[in-house]
Simulated assay, not measured.
Amino acid sequence: MSWRRVESQGISILNGILGDYLVESGNPLAIDMGFYHQSRLLEPDHLTPLIDQYSQGDGVAPLERCPVKLVVLLHGLTNDETIWDFPLRETMDQPASITDQSTSEFGRDNYGLRLARDARYIPLYLRYNTGLKIMDNAHRFSALMTQFVNASPVEVDEIVCIGFSMGGLLLRYAQLLEHESTQNWLHKVSRVFYLGSPHSGAPLEKLGHIAGKVLGVVPRSYVNIWADWVNIRSQGIKDLRHGVNFGPDQDEYLPFNDAVRHFFISGAVSSEKNRFANQMVGDALVRVDSARPANAPALSEYAHFDATHHLALAHSDRVYEQILKWCQNQL
């Protein structure tokens, strides 16, 4: 692992914990949202050479490849786009391909590259400040998607979105915003995948909220001073307490966009389906009943993977095979 990658991941962790404060204080360590390719920021006008890169080998000029398909991958809290990368040892036996040759930095292999190889999707990896309010990030993401779709040198026929953990919640809000927008890229989205996303909230953040409240009312300064430390959590982390519940009593659910198909994937820490730990903690951070929301549309699809903890959902061979299968099925 290069030091550049370690630095990038360290900054992402810092932004997850204190990202809102970094923005408010004008700190240069605050992450600006953008699409990245091989750890480099992509501008909208870079989409043309990116299409060229993934089209080479087809024997067809890029501008003749109309339409094109995009897969957009959104990481989770304190992550960056490298959370999608499989460990290097797991990529050694993969056959060489155009996408392998053009994206060989750090020996990377991930869902985006595999979908490029197996289904001809062009991958875009989002990097964003996970310490900001999820709704704020949804506004930024919607604007960024509009920029890139408008900048495509050929028609974008289909968009598939894959959100891991917080990334899935960001997609929920972004769909709601775009559904009400005049600049709508959403009509190009065919499928949205939610991998370990806490739609009804994450238990650890709920516990942190309770701990901060309890410590804050204890009438001893040397005890309730710890409430200040507990409550330092960023607004992005605090948003995870309720997931996409909203309203005055946090008992209303954000509606799903019925124009696209929704796919939900959950994990569990144990290989035993009915083990008590699986029921209580799910994949260690998100419970199964939160990853599979009760108000999902009727035509939604679900998949569950035992012995697959939260982070592993972002780079699992079994999970990828399920994603590919769903992508290849006709809607």
Score class of each variant (00 low, 15 high):
residue 219 P to L: 06
residue 187 H to P: 03
residue 323 I to D: 07
residue 258 D to H: 02
residue 115 L to A: 09
residue 8 S to Y: 00
residue 59 G to D: 07
residue 177 L to M: 03
residue 27 N to C: 13
residue 15 N to V: 09
residue 281 V to L: 15
residue 84 W to I: 03
residue 216 G to R: 13
residue 76 G to Y: 08
residue 61 A to I: 15
residue 308 T to P: 07
residue 247 G to T: 06
residue 136 D to G: 02
residue 117 R to H: 07
residue 192 V to Q: 06
residue 121 Y to P: 05
residue 120 R to C: 06
residue 307 A to H: 12
residue 249 D to M: 09
residue 328 Q to L: 11
residue 202 A to E: 01
residue 100 D to I: 03
residue 2 S to L: 00
residue 73 L to T: 00
residue 3 W to H: 09
residue 149 V to D: 13
residue 49 P to Q: 11
residue 22 L to F: 12
residue 145 M to P: 01
residue 191 R to I: 06
residue 306 D to M: 01
residue 328 Q to H: 04
residue 23 V to D: 06
residue 140 R to Y: 11
residue 225 I to A: 15
residue 138 A to N: 01
residue 43 E to Q: 13
residue 192 V to R: 04
residue 258 D to P: 00
residue 217 V to S: 14
residue 310 H to E: 11
residue 110 N to Y: 13
residue 290 S to E: 10
residue 231 N to K: 15
residue 52 D to A: 08
residue 76 G to E: 07
residue 217 V to W: 13
residue 26 G to E: 04
residue 255 P to I: 00
residue 219 P to G: 08
residue 243 G to A: 03
residue 82 T to A: 11
residue 228 D to Y: 14
residue 299 L to D: 14
residue 114 R to N: 08
residue 154 V to Q: 07
residue 253 Y to Q: 10
residue 221 S to Q: 13
residue 307 A to L: 07
residue 331 L to D: 02
residue 149 V to A: 13
residue 162 I to Q: 05
residue 263 F to S: 06
residue 26 G to Y: 01
residue 257 N to C: 09
residue 143 A to C: 08
residue 280 M to T: 05
residue 201 G to I: 15
residue 67 P to G: 03
residue 146 T to L: 08
residue 163 G to T: 14
residue 245 N to D: 09
residue 32 D to A: 05
residue 46 H to E: 12
residue 25 S to K: 11
residue 168 G to Q: 03
residue 181 S to W: 11
residue 67 P to A: 07
residue 69 K to L: 06
residue 125 Y to I: 03
residue 181 S to H: 09
residue 185 W to Q: 08
residue 308 T to C: 12
residue 227 A to G: 15
residue 324 L to Y: 10
residue 187 H to D: 12
residue 281 V to D: 10
residue 157 D to C: 05
residue 87 P to F: 01
residue 331 L to G: 02
residue 216 G to E: 15
residue 283 D to C: 08
residue 19 G to V: 05
residue 252 E to I: 04
residue 155 E to K: 14
residue 63 L to S: 14
residue 170 L to S: 04
residue 264 F to Q: 02
residue 155 E to G: 10
residue 43 E to M: 11
residue 170 L to T: 11
residue 205 E to N: 10
residue 194 Y to N: 03
residue 275 R to A: 15
residue 239 D to R: 02
residue 116 A to D: 07
residue 56 Q to H: 03
residue 37 H to L: 08
residue 102 S to A: 10
residue 1 M to C: 10
residue 146 T to Q: 11
residue 285 L to P: 05
residue 40 R to K: 14
residue 104 S to T: 04
residue 317 D to H: 09
residue 297 P to W: 00
residue 108 R to A: 10
residue 253 Y to S: 10
residue 251 D to W: 02
residue 238 K to D: 11
residue 119 A to L: 12
residue 258 D to M: 01
residue 96 A to G: 10
residue 307 A to W: 10
residue 235 Q to D: 06
residue 330 Q to M: 11
residue 251 D to G: 04
residue 273 K to E: 12
residue 237 I to M: 15
residue 189 V to D: 04
residue 71 V to H: 05
residue 327 C to T: 12
residue 287 R to C: 09
residue 191 R to V: 05
residue 7 E to G: 09
residue 256 F to C: 06
residue 69 K to W: 13
residue 213 K to N: 13
residue 159 I to E: 12
residue 271 S to G: 14
residue 53 Q to L: 12
residue 82 T to S: 15
residue 51 I to H: 03
residue 229 W to K: 15
residue 241 R to W: 01
residue 262 H to Q: 07
residue 22 L to H: 11
residue 318 R to L: 09
residue 225 I to Y: 08
residue 298 A to W: 04
residue 23 V to L: 11
residue 120 R to Y: 06
residue 61 A to E: 15
residue 298 A to F: 10
